[in-house]
Design a protein around this nucleic acid. Structure first.
Lengths: 221, 221, 221, 221
DNA sequence: CATGAATGAGCATTCATTCAT
DNA sequence: CATGAATGAATGCTCATTCAT
């Protein structure tokens, strides 16, 4: 524990373990302190309150996830492949680190501050990666231009998140996330994809819902 | 307030107002009691804990939603139209009752008991309606049989839920849910739909992920 | 349950069982009501409050005890034999009815009202029986006149009560109350008894403590 | 209030005053805190529950009483004189500190935990001092060997306790404890004492109760 | 007399946070 | 920087008792 960063880090790591073990609300700050090997008061030199730790876990871990995610995406070319890569990466993270997944999926959502006050910079960044991929696909003519990337990013993230949540909350034999990833990729890629020879049915459908032309972004971002 | 049901109902209604106004954690049981016009103790004749009220709100309101949803679905024929109907119905509910939406989307998730101990019967039922529609489409040859309904239901619900959450949490000008519904319908229907003449690309995609044949349900239900 | 007396009686009996089982503080009035087969409110037609039941148990049961005790004492003649009879009778009651003994020895003392507000008519009566025996012995020249019956009655009752309490609170193999009775009789009779030829030592002792003559009643009654 | 011990002590002293004034059940923890000049929470750094304070008062004060009692007993020689000393000491304590006596005699007994869960180490120690004196007297041939010290200690303590309780609960002119002490000493010493020339009557009495020889200890300790 | 739904007073305890050292 | 003893706000829930029927 040579420098400031290390102590902060050890508190965060301790918190992940404690939160995963006891849940956020039942975790005592003093327990995190003990687990981290520091005094109670020391924690307040690095974090403003208990929920700050939770949010810091999210920010810090998400930052790492995003960096690695971008690296993965670099290795793949084409919007389709990249989206599939994103989906698989997201779900793969779950099984990589059970404790962290538990904290990010469940405990984080139990925090008032996170849900209501916090502006999730990293989450926005994460979602925007999806939007970027969608836009890239649209630019290259692979994905349909009439689909609003701001809505697509939430649809795709929502699907991933729901499946992740289900996986984390499942006791006993968990669903195979490989299969889930394959299915979601299949579903979303087909949904997004530009049909070489657009069928009449598609046009009908689109018009049936809002009667508007491809630029139906609805102002959402 | 003639009978038992009425008193219970008035407590639930009061709770929705109070929870939406102050948030679950900051709501005092005594405030709910005052708002409902009963004594504090009376609440405990109908509910075991404060969180019980929250869960009852969910169960009760969902039960109503499900009944009306099924009625709506009766009016529409064909898996495609029914899925579109479902999606629109889900998002439409949000704007119908802001207070209730706030409670169900945000406050409910802040409850430990709900997230961890509660077995969400109504939610399961709700999700299964999606699965039924998907299966119906598969049976009729409209939707691709290789897609696992148990995964699809979560993907679709997750997307709806994420967009709902975003809508509820947005301060200021909210996204147009009509547009969101249209986009989601478009996305998912295309994703699910059986292409008359399956393109080679699709087969490639499927095989790329798991190399298996259409029945990749992965044992998930 | 033909008449008023019966219902009152059944409530008292139920209360003894419930108090012995759960302790006074943990016993719910509603539980006593259920056990007695009456409605909660009915109890308040016969008793003013919960502690009233406890005190009524004491009064009622003591009344019976006193009646039978007096009958027993009638059969014996002589102050010495009567005191021995009293002692044995008191301790014998314990093992007769475990539940009642538990309630009278332990639960009753846990009641604020009993300890502080209640004027224990029956207990006074009970104690006075001891005093009467002592006075009888003094009148007949069997017991020493310098001993104050008002103090003796408390000394003897206190000894009996402490041994009873110990017996009730003992888990496992309980002390043999027959032996205790024999020892107490031996102790107190010797202590009270007029020695034909008073030894010098006794006079020394008495004078050592207060230097007064035999009539040291100290005004206590 | 320089150190830890002082703070604990001031809480105990405050508690004695508050308990004596309002009774244990009606005393608020916050009132004790105010009286002691500490925060409510501070009390829980030194005691686990409210009842813990009560029990600590007993343990702590009894420890002091026992120490001083042993000192007093050192000054006196002979089992007889020592028993008389014990009796006088016990009753003298009452009038020394009215508040403490009130708490130890009345409030303490109103505590469920004290009566049922607590193992009274100090009380046992206190009782055993009586037993030791009795045994000493028996060894020296002053007290009758057939009397079981384990029963005697409870008889003597019970008598003292009953007289103490009566004294504490008496409103108005209280009995003179000096007189009570003298009477009890007289009673018990005569009861215990070995008669130089045992009268026939005594043997009769002993045999009347159990027909056994002097070793009737009944296994009690 | 009997009921039992409704009442509402009452408070110990926890634990995040602070700050003097 | 680090400590950890001290703080004190904050409230859900129980259950004896009532009283309209």
């Amino acid at each position: 524990m040579a420098n400031r960063g290390d102590k902060r880090e050890s508190i965060l790591d301790a918190a992940v373990r404690v939160f995963a073990r006891s849940g956020f609300h039942h975790s005592r700050v003093s327990e995190i302190a003990r687990e981290a090997g520091v005094a109670d008061g020391t924690i307040y030199l690095y974090f403003r309150h208990k929920e700050d730790i939770l949010i810091a876990i999210f920010e810090e871990k998400m930052a790492g996830v995003i960096v690695k995610l971008r690296e993965e995406l670099e290795l793949v070319s084409g919007a389709e492949a990249r989206l599939a890569c994103f989906i698989e990466y997201h779900l793969t993270q779950m099984s990589r680190n059970r404790e962290l997944a538990e904290v990010l999926q469940v405990e984080l959502r139990l925090s008032n501050k996170f849900m209501k006050e916090y502006v999730p910079i990293r989450l926005t960044e994460y979602l925007d990666i999806i939007a970027e991929i969608v836009q890239e696909g649209q630019k290259l003519g692979q994905f349909r231009p009439e689909l609003n990337p701001a809505i697509m990013k939430r649809a795709i993230f929502g699907a991933l998140d729901e499946l992740s949540m289900h996986w984390v909350l499942t006791r006993g034999r968990r669903p195979d996330l490989k299969v889930s990833a394959a299915q979601l990729s299949d579903l979303f890629l087909r949904g997004l994809r530009q049909t070489e020879a657009p069928c009449i049915a598609v046009e009908d459908l689109t018009s049936r819902h809002d009667g508007s032309v491809p630029t139906l972004t609805g102002g959402q971002t």
